[in-house]
Computed example of a mutant assay.
Amino acid sequence: MRARGPRTSVSTDVARRLRRDMTPEERLLWSRLRSAGLGVSFRRQEVIGPYVVDFVCYPAQLIVELDGSQHAGSESDQVRDAKLIADGFTVLRF
């Protein structure tokens, strides 16, 4: 398994808040991912380096991001995706 990178109290606190305050869409997808019997496990609102990703499956090196309109064409998302891809992840954005 790949190292997740250093966790900071700020990113851990943000991840905890995001897990507590998930959007309805995130809740729906999480209910499907955790009970789908996919043969792999996902984590939600996981800290990877300086980022908090919506859902990650470490064995498959897959990150799933659910983006609202605030993310449309965001340059910071492109930089973030490039870094995560360079770290060996596949990033799916919906």
Rank of each mutant, 00 (worst) to 15 (best):
R80L: 11
S11N: 15
V47W: 01
D67Q: 11
A15P: 03
R17N: 02
E75G: 02
R16L: 14
V52W: 04
P50H: 10
G49F: 06
R43E: 10
A86N: 09
R34Y: 04
R7V: 14
L84V: 06
L62A: 06
V56Q: 01
R4M: 15
H71F: 13
R80D: 11
P6C: 10
V10W: 11
L29Q: 04
R80G: 10
G68W: 11
G37K: 02
F89W: 15
R19M: 03
G88I: 07
V64Q: 00
V10H: 14
A15Q: 04
R32V: 10
L62T: 04
G37Y: 02
V56R: 01
F89M: 09
Q61W: 08
S11Y: 00
D87Q: 12
A72K: 13
A60L: 14
P59H: 05
D21K: 06
R32G: 05
H71K: 11
S76H: 12
V79C: 05
L33M: 05
K83V: 13
D54F: 05
V47P: 04
D13N: 14
V91T: 07
S9Q: 14
S76D: 11
R44L: 00
R4K: 15
V14M: 09
T23A: 10
I63Y: 01
Q61M: 14
Q70R: 14
R34W: 02
D21I: 04
A3N: 14
P24G: 09
V14I: 13
V56E: 02
S11L: 09
V10A: 15
S31L: 03
Q78T: 08
K83D: 15
A82S: 12
S11R: 14
E65P: 06
G37Q: 03
V10G: 05
A82C: 04
T8I: 09
K83Q: 13
D77H: 08
